[in-house]
């Protein structure tokens, strides 16, 4: 099996679904690139090259370069989805969602419910998120808790190349609007990814480590950190389960609760701002439904409640680090000891 990067895995998922299903189209800012400049077709493939190569194979009819007007093209994608296509629209940075809130929340997310189940909206919005890219406050946020908050949307956070391909194919085949969030620091990560198309179901957490002492719930890039921490603590005799929910909506609450019932200790790692994020949501879930199983207070590892800093030293301090995760695990282990 060949090793592929997160970027290649996403590109392959798009290409395979476009081959399989002629209603799948791709649109976004410079998704092909070079429009109007002779000899420069497919110049960009999106700002980080994820869609490169799609336009030469599928043509400008199915790979659309859009104006820098998110409210227009996300709205167009929602309409296309409601009328028979399966658009995959690229909202370059999730930070730009502010200008297309209405199209996503009030339109795409509500069609099925408000039309009495008679309409489907097979829309995928791909978007980059996350800090660590030296891209400053307006291009570094983790806004997935906001989408998770809205009923009618599915929210996907692939944590590795294998996950990215299977979850994106599932997203494209899904009949509901899906927000597919790609962590920009993961694009060059590599692992073995099957050449064949495959799907990973939504709402089932991935157990990336299995242990007895502590449950670490982490998503996106934080899964990688949590795995590192779990492997490091193993040699000190602390065995951790690492749960990657994969999708924050639907959320696999059963796997989280079952794991905490077994370990009695919970650390939630979330790169999103600390108020009303997945860490608070999952902590509340466990406090409400598995309180009796807890042997120590729940610990949340999150950034501080500030914009993502631009100064590299501050940005590095801002992001939940393996060291902070490790310290949180040791703290819950030492509680009452």
């Amino acid at each position: 099996m060949a090793k592929k990067s997160y970027r290649q895995a996403i590109n392959e998922a798009l290409a395979q679904e476009m081959r399989r299903d002629p209603t799948v189209i791709v649109m976004g800012e410079d998704n092909a690139g070079g429009l109007g400049a002779p000899g420069e077709d497919d110049a960009w493939g999106g700002v980080l090259g994820v869609t490169k190569g799609l336009m030469p194979e599928f043509g400008r009819e199915r790979v659309l370069d859009t104006p820098i007007s998110e409210s227009a093209f996300i709205g167009a994608a929602a309409g296309a989805a409601a009328t028979g296509l399966r658009p995959v629209a690229e909202l370059m940075f999730v930070d730009f969602m502010g200008v297309c809130f209405d199209q996503i929340f009030n339109q795409a997310g509500k069609f099925r419910y408000m039309f009495g189940g008679k309409a489907v909206t097979p829309l995928v919005v791909r978007t980059m998120y996350g800090a660590g890219f030296r891209a400053a406050s307006q291009h570094s946020q983790c806004l997935y808790p906001i989408f998770t908050h809205v009923p009618g949307l599915k929210v996907v956070l692939p944590s590795s190349p294998y996950e990215a391909k299977g979850l994106l194919i599932q997203a494209i085949r899904d009949d509901d609007p899906v927000i597919f969030l790609e962590h920009k620091v993961l694009y060059d990560d590599e692992e073995e990814v099957p050449d064949e198309p495959y799907t990973i179901p939504f709402g089932e957490a991935n157990l990336t480590r299995e242990g007895e002492d502590v449950t670490i719930v982490a998503m996106g890039r934080m899964v990688k950190f949590a795995n590192q921490v779990a492997d490091g603590l193993e040699t000190d005799g602390i065995s951790c389960t690492v749960l990657d929910p994969r999708t924050t909506s639907p959320l696999d609450t059963d796997s989280i609760l079952e794991s905490v019932e077994e370990t009695g200790r919970l650390v939630v790692v979330d790169e999103a701002s600390p108020r009303c994020n997945m860490a608070t949501d999952i902590s509340a879930l466990v406090a409400e439904r598995a309180f009796g199983a807890l042997k120590a207070p729940i610990r949340m590892v999150t950034p501080p409640h500030t914009p993502v800093p631009f100064a590299p030293e501050l940005e590095d301090l801002y992001i939940p680090s393996p060291e902070k995760i490790g310290a949180a695990v040791r703290e819950v282990m030492e509680h009452g000891a």
Binding site: Y162, G166, P194, E196, P197, Y198, T199, I200, L207, E210
Partner: peptide, 16 residues
């Protein structure tokens, strides 16, 4: 083991 189960699931997820 967890890996054994995961390998079978990875196979079962393939199209076809």
């Amino acid at each position: 083991s967890r890996d054994l189960v995961e390998d079978v699931l990875k196979y079962k997820r393939l199209d076809g």
